Simulated assay, not measured.
Amino acid sequence: MAAVQLGLIGYGVNQAGSGARAAARVASQGGDPDAAARSAVSGWLDPSVSLGGGPGSDVTTATVRVTVPNVIPLFDRYAITRRATMPTDD
């Protein structure tokens, strides 16, 4: 069970990073970062996106948070946050 839990956490880290990169890239070009993150992350992880920078700034930063479910009943769900920064297109 512990190996499965660690595998899910590793998968969550990978997915959060992918979502953050997609959201930052799309937001830096003036698109919808929430839609980009949701399309890059497995739906069952329910990603949430927050942005920094953006119009008028040299960089756009996206932070994506996903929550990995627990498979071991004694532990709580595990939240993972990843951040990516892209140069803002003018």
Rank of each mutant, 00 (worst) to 15 (best):
A2R: 02
A3H: 01
A3F: 14
A3V: 14
V4H: 12
V4L: 15
L6F: 15
G7C: 11
G7H: 10
I9A: 14
G10N: 10
G10D: 10
Y11A: 10
G12D: 13
N14C: 09
A16I: 06
G17M: 09
S18T: 09
S18W: 02
G19D: 05
A20R: 10
A20K: 09
R21W: 06
A22C: 00
A22G: 01
V26C: 01
S28V: 06
S28D: 07
Q29F: 02
Q29M: 15
G30N: 08
G31T: 10
A36G: 03
R38Q: 12
R38N: 07
S39W: 01
V41I: 11
V41E: 03
S42R: 13
W44I: 09
L45W: 08
P47K: 12
V49K: 00
L51C: 05
G52C: 02
G53S: 09
G54N: 07
P55H: 08
G56A: 01
G56K: 03
S57Q: 12
D58C: 03
D58W: 08
D58M: 08
T60F: 07
T60I: 04
T60D: 04
T60R: 06
T61N: 02
T61I: 06
T63K: 11
T63H: 09
V64T: 04
V64F: 08
R65T: 15
R65Y: 01
V66N: 02
T67H: 09
V68I: 11
V68P: 03
P69G: 13
P69K: 14
P69N: 13
N70Q: 14
V71S: 09
P73W: 12
F75K: 03
F75P: 00
D76M: 03
D76E: 12
R77S: 15
R77P: 02
I80E: 07
I80S: 04
T81H: 04
R82D: 00
R82A: 12
R82T: 02
R83S: 09
R83H: 00
R83C: 00
A84V: 05
A84S: 14
M86C: 10
M86D: 11
M86W: 06
P87C: 12
T88H: 13
T88Q: 14
T88R: 14
D89C: 02
D89E: 15
D90A: 15
